[in-house]
Write a protein that binds this DNA or RNA. Sequence first.
RNA 1: UCCUCGAUAGCUCAAUGGCAGAGCAACCGGCUGUUAACCGGUAGGUUCCAGGUUCGAGCCCUGGUCGAGGAGCCA
Length: 412
Amino acid sequence: MLFKGDFDEAVFEALKSLPQESALTVTGVVKADPRAPGVPGGFELGVRAVELGQRAEDYPITPKEHGIEFLMDNRHLWIRSARQWALLRVRATVMRAIRQWLDGEGFVEMSTPILTPSAAEGTSNLFEVAYFEDKAYLAQTGQLYNEANIYAFGKVYCFGPTFRAEKSKTRRHLTEFWMVEPEIAFCDLDQLLEIEERFVSHLVKTVLESNAQELKALGRDLSRLTCIVPPFPRLSYDDAVVKLQAMQADLRAGKPVLRYDGAPLQGIDDPALLDITWGMDFGSPHETALTQLYEKPVFITGFPTAVKAFYMEPVPGRPEVCKSADLLAPEGYGEIIGGSERISDPAKLEARLHEHGLPLDPYRWYVDLRKYGSVPHSGFGLGVERTVTWICGTEHIREASPFPRLINRMYP
RNA sequence: UCCUCGAUAGCUCAAUGGCAGAGCAACCGGCUGUUAACCGGUAGGUUCCAGGUUCGAGCCCUGGUCGAGGAGCCA
């Protein structure tokens, strides 16, 4: 805060004309003033002396609305803006809380490789890189390696960037994103879900404690976060399909479909988007609809074995479904966690590889894990940017990463 | 890969097929407890590219390029 009386008229005029984002060193007296904005706010600096560092010229981001292409071209400057600044500070809190909670629960952090050998499972979703005379692929999961790690360390997690070469152009997809993947020995699906709901609740609670001002700056409705405590509702895939079919029928009949709080369902423009029969995987419209039925995140359990990965344990007596669970964030945000109990029997695993048409050779080490002291085990992967997007109540995932990588975006 | 929409001043957007416009930013002046301030003035254009229709195209047609939203796939 500068006052005219504290400065020579000419100096005051010169300072006043400094362009936005010029660099200054200021000296002054800190004082409390309720009118002062910012984070944490309530304090301001009565400036007595100013030393000019660098005078900025034509700062591109002006105090008005900008288009997304322009802002993304100027991402290196956009992160200075209040909203982006708040969002990225929440992201840092989430990343800290992830390690804090897992370390406190006795998990051991294990790095899994980012450069991985030619995966036999379709490489269309993987980024290929030159590896000397050979080819390598950027990892899209560390899970298989973590299954090896648990037999040495019990409870482990890997936490790092992961890569998907999917040609997705939606508000939920990045081609490079951060994922934390815990894996636990002697753990079945029910126990896994208890870990997940405690974990996610801790992340939300830590952000509420650490970033109240940031959430306020983002305009987040805090009541949507303070309610995030265990237990989370569990909905079987079977029941979810029935619910979706009923919702679709009501929409088609013009009957109101209500959210958990009694307000009308949002975001389903065409009832045909909710088409589903048992056996189909969920698309994003299905997640959008289901998540609005609950105040908290909801687990969808027991997906059809056919639409899920080969390593998921089939349900005893009902092999057409597997011990899998996705966690869908509320308010239409959708999947933030995918998890399952893994097959622990070597013969069963080999049979599943065969059913998926996968060669045994690249997975020999993975099958080995079931031959030497195999135990029931489970794990999950949580997407950091999706979680931050949900906690912050943000429209698009690209703002949850400092320098997001999207299908059409590598700069800056 | 598919569907929908879009591209005009530095930025955000207007403009019946008939002179290219506004707000913000910049620059000049006024004002000061402002927070995307306010008042007055100045300057700012290869209307994405290549063709075509027309007396005349920012606008209509064809083909591209780029972007946004969505689908599929997924965290």
